[in-house]
Design a protein around this nucleic acid. Structure first.
Length: 305
RNA sequence: GGAGGGGUGGCCGAGCGGUCAAUGGCAGCAGACUGUAAAUCUGCCGACGGAAGUCUACGUAGGUUCAAAUCCUACCCCCUCCA
């Protein structure tokens, strides 16, 4: 009714919307799953909300999303192989239905989502099914759900090369900075994750040297910037002591500034990775990334530093 | 002057004979956070000790009892109402 998300938010950049597939997993206690779709029970007022592949795609269309995601079932981990396999079957049938429901428009795209848990043969089958259907981009779903970074990298390293070279590869729900670097090295192009924003709200900042919790007492009198190399407002205009105070005092500006900082950090990290790819120096970039982090955060003031 | 209520760990506040080093909340100290049910959640939080444990604690001083933050007496302080 408000003309879509771009108009409503005053945002002319691209928007990617998710389908509700993640909530099939994260809200598993509040939903019923059938071949037809998923029914959620609102925890707020108990009302029922039915989501089918067709309805999810329609809603995303109405939101004016540049990139629409197919409805899938984000498979939990750990799960018995048979469960992963049947879940995969459902997700692939839903992917086909999503494709049929999607209205093609210039400049808009629909992405399929690869499932199959940590089973490489199931992942291969999922890739083949999706490529057969044909999408504008391909996502890896059902990862970073507890399997650990090594297992995740195994799947990413195996699956990414199987995806069409001329289409974006998107790792859903990832992740920590080191996850992004490792995934890019394995062929991933794009990500989405709550980590930079949720962490920013809870006083955790990401810096070139590693994580910094601004709630910690060590920042009480620290007049230095959070990250001297960062160009964001939190780092160029304010001290660690002030950011610490804002979070202690429950001032909304604290979460705002740290969210801004974390997004800046992530943007810069991705820009650095893109540049490294152009220079064909990804390995060097990754080595420098890890070396900087082993130094740890700058020592607290008054600690002989 | 009279009547009544109350003093509990940094703060607020339960407990009202043993299961009490004492529920909760706040503050404090750390930790977690991966397609957002998250401005959320978890742990610690008297002293000493790694731990079992020991010691000191519920206004102060006595007392009753096998046993007291809880009962009794006196005193000190705070609050409310009446004069």
């Amino acid at each position: 009714r408000l003309g879509g998300l771009h108009r409503m938010m005053g945002w002319d950049g691209p928007i990617l919307t998710d389908s509700g597939g993640f909530q099939v997993m994260s809200l598993s206690g509040l939903r019923k799953l059938t071949e037809h779709g998923v029914t959620f029970r609102s925890h707020i007022d108990g009302s029922e909300h039915v989501l089918t592949p067709e309805r999810s795609v329609e809603i995303q269309h109405l939101l004016d999303a540049d990139i629409t995601m197919v409805l899938d079932e984000c498979t939990p981990h750990p799960a018995p192989r048979e469960a992963v396999e049947s879940s995969l079957g459902l997700s692939m049938r839903w992917a086909a239905r999503s494709k049929r429901a999607f209205v093609r428009r210039e400049g808009y795209g629909l992405f399929g989502i690869v499932q199959g848990g940590v089973h490489l043969d199931l992942r291969e089958r999922s890739v083949a099914d999706l490529v057969e259907i044909g999408f504008d981009g391909y996502a890896l779903g059902g990862l970073a759900v507890g399997e650990g970074q090594a297992a995740m990298f195994d799947v990413v390293g195996h699956v990414a090369p199987l995806l069409p070279q001329d289409r974006p590869r998107y790792l859903m729900g990832v992740g920590m900075p080191a996850d992004l670097v490792g995934a890019v090295m394995r062929g991933v192009d794009m990500f989405d994750c709550v980590v930079p924003t949720r962490s920013g709200r809870t006083a955790l900042a990401f810096t070139r040297r590693g994580k910094v919790n601004l709630r910690n007492a060590r920042h009480l009198d620290d007049d230095r910037p959070l990250d001297a190399e960062c160009r964001c407002p939190a780092c160029t205009k304010f001290s660690r002591a002030y950011l610490h105070h804002l979070h202690r005092a429950d001032e909304m500006l604290g979460p705002i500034l740290l969210t801004w900082h974390n997004l800046t950090y992530y943007q810069d990290l991705m820009a650095g990775l893109r540049e490294a790819i152009e220079r064909q120096a990804l390995a060097e970039f990754a080595a420098a990334f890890h070396a900087a982090r082993t130094e740890g955060d700058i020592p607290p003031i008054g600690d002989g530093a």
